[in-house]
Design a protein around this nucleic acid. Structure first.
Length: 262
DNA sequence: AAGTAGATCAACCGCCAGCAA
DNA sequence: TTTGCTGGCGGTTGATCTACT
């Protein structure tokens, strides 16, 4: 038995939206807010699937969308976030105000992939192309799920919290690489990246600094004092331990050197 | 001007997680 | 615990645009 359709397909329009449909959808959401997408088409007199309405609103009609070309800063932020989160477009989009997951996904596939390849970087692994080709079993590092879970959790928390931030609220963020080894709460936060090959020509040796909640190494310089959550660029984090000392994105680089391996 | 190839991006599809009954 | 519904997500498609011959 097949899956039942999300809505009545026989009487719905498909393809590009007309101006009139857009206007109806905007008018309805302005008047009633984003409610139940399934019932919205009928309520708004639209011959569209609820999913289609949601997509149209989120990706195109929402008033807070930023249209136009991506800036160089946005490019770099996307690259950094992708290197950390993988193809989690919605999480990446959450850190680029006014951009949608669909937009970023398209932009990645049409522009950034090529840009990285031209730099000699494998867009899938963010490692030098010749290494990626030499290694047939490329995998994203195993810490990814922990990171994604953490970011999702903090995003959810921030949605329901309007309290002041312990960290910078500038969301063109500050994604820095971190290392984390919690001695007292290891089930919750301890993670490693054991399958990362750190024998990289670009990598100076890992240098351990004691008695700091976190740090990373940037261009050979130790950046001290950032907690795990701040290095993720997560606002209002319950995990924040550093008190919000924050470094600008312009200084942030994804640097696997600081990820300890076992 | 016409044809073609490549690039772009809006929209669709199917899967999955969360939730309620 | 199971089932069905819904919203959300990522992958993919295909219509349209642009550059080139």
């Amino acid at each position: 038995m097949g899956r039942s359709p999300c809505c009545e397909k026989a009487h719905t329009n498909k393809g590009a939206w007309t101006k009139e449909e857009d206007e109806r959808l905007i008018a309805y959401i302005r008047a009633n807010g984003e409610g139940c997408w399934r019932s919205l088409p009928k309520a708004a007199s639209l011959l569209r699937c609820g999913k289609s309405c949601r997509l149209r609103w989120i990706n195109y009609l929402r008033p807070d969308l930023k249209r136009g070309n991506f800036t160089e800063e946005e490019d770099e932020l996307i690259i950094k976030l992708h290197s950390l989160l993988g193809n989690k477009w919605s999480l990446i989009a959450a850190r680029l105000p006014g951009r949608t997951d669909n937009e970023i996904k398209n932009y990645w596939n049409t522009h950034i992939k090529r840009k990285l390849i031209s730099r000699g970087t494998d867009p899938a692994t963010h490692r030098p192309l010749h290494e990626a080709q030499a290694n047939n079993t490329i995998s994203f590092f195993k810490g990814e799920n922990k990171i994604v879970e953490f970011v999702k959790r903090e995003d959810e928390r921030n949605k329901s919290s309007s309290s002041s931030s312990c960290c910078s609220s500038n969301s063109s963020e500050k994604l820095l690489i971190w290392r984390r080894s919690e001695e007292d709460d290891d089930e919750k936060m301890k993670w490693r990246c054991p399958d990362l090959n750190l024998e990289l020509s670009i990598s100076p040796p890992f240098e351990k600094k004691e008695d700091l909640c976190d740090y990373n190494v940037l261009n050979g310089e130790a950046l001290i004092g950032l907690c795990f959550s701040c290095k993720l660029g997560v606002k209002n984090s319950s995990e924040c331990k550093c008190g919000g000392v924050f470094l600008g994105l312009s200084r942030g680089v994804l640097d696997y050197r600081s990820l300890e391996t076992n």
